[in-house]
Design a protein around this nucleic acid. Structure first.
Lengths: 162, 162
DNA sequence: GGTTAATATGTTATAGAATTACAATTATCA
DNA sequence: TGATAATTGTAATTCTATAACATATTAACC
C-alpha cells in the first residue's frame, strides 16, 4: 500500500505524466479522450485536490467548454468508470487518480482541517471487509474506504478541534 | 467483527430492544429523546433499511410531526451524532444502528440488486487504513467503510449484472 | 415558583448535487 | 459515403442539505 498526497512533489511532471498515461491507455483501449474529458482530468490533476462537479463546471464554463451540469457529470463518469479519477463519497467530490491504469481500490485520507485528500491503496478482499464478506456470503464488487481526520501538518500546528 | 442484516430475525423484538437501549442511554446521559427523534429512530428501525432523509420526512409529514427538511435532518443529526443511526455515504441515506450504545466504527455491505444493507464492525486503527495512517502520520477520527456488491440471496438467483 | 439560559422545533428560502429527456453533433467503421 | 454508435448541448427537474430567523419548550438556578 502506498500513499501520495501529503508530501511535496514535482507537480508539473506529475500532471504531465498522468495525462500521457491516460492518453496511452485510451489509445490502447480505443476510448475517446475528448476535449472535455481531457480538460476535466487536467483540472483535477492540476488542482491536486477533491473538487465538486459544479466547481469543475465553473472552469469549463469560463473556457466555453460547456455550461450545463451534464457536461461535467458525463466527463466525470467517464473518468471515474475508467478509474482515471475517483469520487470521494464523503465530500461529494472528485479527485484525479494518482496511478491511472493500474487496477486498484482507492482508500482516501481526508483532512478535515485543510481539506487535503491523500490516496492510498486498499485491498478489500483481504482485511476486515473481506472477512465479513466471506463469512456472510456477500460478494464485493467495489469498496468505499475513506478516513476523516487530521493530516500530519494540521496535526502539529493549527486547530485542535474545530 | 459481527454482521447483522442479511439473516432472518425477530424483528419486533429487535425494534423494541434497540429503542429501549437508546432510551436508557439517553436517560443516563441526559439527552433529550424527543418525540421527533424517537419517531425517526422507530421508522428507521422498523423499516430496517437505508432511507433517504426526504423519505423519512414524508412519514413525519403524514403523521403531523413536521413537514420541512430541517425537522428530519435535525433528528437524523442527533441520532447519527450519538451513534443511534449511521449515514451510508454511498447512498446518501440513513440506517438505524444495530448495536446502539457501544462505541464502534460501522462498516456496511450494500447489495446493489436488492438494496439491503448489512452493518458490520470495523476496526480502522488496525488493518489497512491504520497502517497507511501511521506510516503517513495521519490521525484518523472517523472512517467510512462501505462495500458494494451482491448479498447472498441476490448472488444465487436473479440478476447477474443489472 | 419564577426567571434565565440553553435546547429544540417551525418555517421560509436557498444552496448544492445529480439526473432525465430530447435535440444536435461528431466519430467509427463497414 | 452512409449507417450506426458515441458524444455533446440544453432545458427542466429531482434529490440532498443547509442557512437564517422566529417561536416554543425544557433545564437549571436562585
Amino acid at each position: 500500500m502506498d500513499t501520495i498526497g501529503f508530501e511535496q512533489h514535482d507537480h508539473k511532471n506529475c500532471v504531465k505524466g498522468a495525462l500521457s498515461a491516460v492518453e496511452a491507455h485510451c489509445a490502447a483501449h480505443k476510448l475517446q479522450f475528448t476535449a472535455v474529458r481531457r480538460r476535466v482530468l487536467e483540472i483535477l490533476l492540476s488542482e491536486h485536490r477533491a473538487m465538486g462537479a459544479y466547481e469543475i463546471l465553473d472552469v469549463l464554463r469560463d473556457e466555453g467548454l460547456g455550461s450545463q451540469p451534464p457536461v461535467a457529470y458525463r466527463a466525470l463518469d467517464f473518468l471515474v468508470s475508467h478509474r482515471f479519477a475517483h469520487k470521494v463519497e464523503r465530500l461529494n467530490a472528485f479527485i484525479a487518480c494518482t496511478h491511472p491504469g493500474e487496477t486498484h481500490t482507492p482508500a482516501f485520507l481526508i483532512c478535515r482541517s485543510c481539506d487535503a485528500v491523500a490516496e492510498a491503496h486498499a485491498e478489500p478482499s483481504k482485511g476486515m471487509l473481506g472477512r465479513v464478506a466471506s463469512e456472510t456470503g456477500f460478494f464485493i464488487e467495489q469498496a468505499v474506504v475513506e478516513a476523516i481526520g487530521l493530516c500530519p501538518q494540521c496535526r502539529k500546528g493549527a486547530l485542535p478541534c474545530p
